[in-house]
């Protein structure tokens, strides 16, 4: 696509192997998804080597699209550079519609007929997750397949009305087994969780007999839903002084954080864990408003 004054807008894909459309992998769709872009670049790097070694099994085609929205990434914006719309809320797209609908349509036409779809996704709240596979409860999801990624958790949640325009949701509706990989961070590269994510994708490809790739078996994933989680919110605004990280085991009554007065440093609120469990999501920005989601705890 041409732009008024910028370079031509190009979305590049990398194809590996020949045969049936087996796996499509999509990296960053939002301009701040640097971690996702990095993970995808590592997947491409590995697949180039795997293909050169003849380790892509016959009859399979893999498509990787590392970046859908670099026009925004290059100018430090999360959403589409021109009108601030979110490409990941435009699927399945519309070829005669608005610009981002057209981009979504062009991408979806390329990725829709694959057996498996993998998206490197980011969360709408700032924070750190335990790396996990996320699926929407559309009736088409297959959690047994998701466990082949070998990440600690497979999270299944009910779609909300605004989720129906996501890539993941539309993949599932169009009969592709879709998985979203949440890898911890978004606008910074967190090397350990990034490696965990790209290795999990290669592990999945190996487990599904698409490539030969030797790695450890990964985790025996636990399947969780919103019911298994407790949300802890802030009861006032201030500076968040957190004492824990994602993946920490905690017990009921443990001190999770203090909210400090930004003028005096006094403790305005003490945040204690309401349950025994493991921290699945941890809010990371230091300034918080009242009613901010601070933690999501998987209950033991």
């Amino acid at each position: 696509m041409n732009s008024p004054y910028r370079d031509e807008f190009r979305i590049q894909g990398f194809r590996f192997g020949k045969g049936k459309k087996t796996v499509a992998i999509v990296g960053s769709i939002r301009g701040d998804e640097v971690q996702q872009q990095f993970i995808c670049s590592q997947i491409v790097k590995n697949l180039i080597e795997i293909e050169e070694n003849g380790d892509i099994l016959p009859g399979h085609e893999i498509l990787v699209i590392p970046s859908v929205n670099h026009f925004s990434m290059n100018i430090n914006k999360r959403f589409w550079a021109m009108d601030n719309t979110d490409i990941n809320r435009m699927f399945p797209g519309y070829e005669k519609g608005e610009t981002t609908q057209r981009i979504a349509h062009a991408v979806f036409e390329k990725v829709r007929k694959y057996k498996y779809g993998i998206q490197l996704a980011s969360f709408y709240l700032p924070g750190e997750f335990i790396p996990h596979v996320r699926m929407m409860n559309t009736g088409y999801q297959n959690t047994d397949l998701a466990r082949h990624f070998g990440l600690p958790y497979v999270m299944v949640r009910d779609p909300r009305p605004y989720d129906t325009t996501l890539l993941n949701y539309n993949w599932q509706i169009f009969k592709t087994q879709a998985f979203s990989i949440y890898s911890g961070s978004t606008d910074i590269i967190h090397k350990p969780s990034a490696k965990m994510a790209w290795v999990s994708v290669l592990r999945f490809l190996s487990q599904m007999n698409i490539i030969n790739y030797e790695c450890h078996a990964g985790y025996n994933s636990s399947v969780i839903t919103d019911i298994n989680q407790v949300t802890v919110k802030s009861d006032c605004g201030g500076i968040l002084y957190s004492f824990c990280d994602a993946n920490n085991e905690i017990r009921k009554g443990d001190l999770l954080a203090k909210i400090l007065d930004p003028y005096t440093g006094d403790t305005l609120s003490t945040i204690l864990s309401p349950v025994n469990g493991i921290l699945f999501f941890v809010h990371q920005k230091p300034l918080i408003a009242q009613n901010t989601v601070l933690y999501k705890i998987i209950v033991h």
Binding site: C236, G237, G238, I239, P262, Y263, I288, A289, Q290, N291
Partner: peptide, 11 residues
């Protein structure tokens, strides 16, 4: 009325 981080409420 919700507290914002520094000395302000969202009203």
């Amino acid at each position: 009325s919700e507290g914002l981080p520094v000395d302000e409420n969202l009203l």
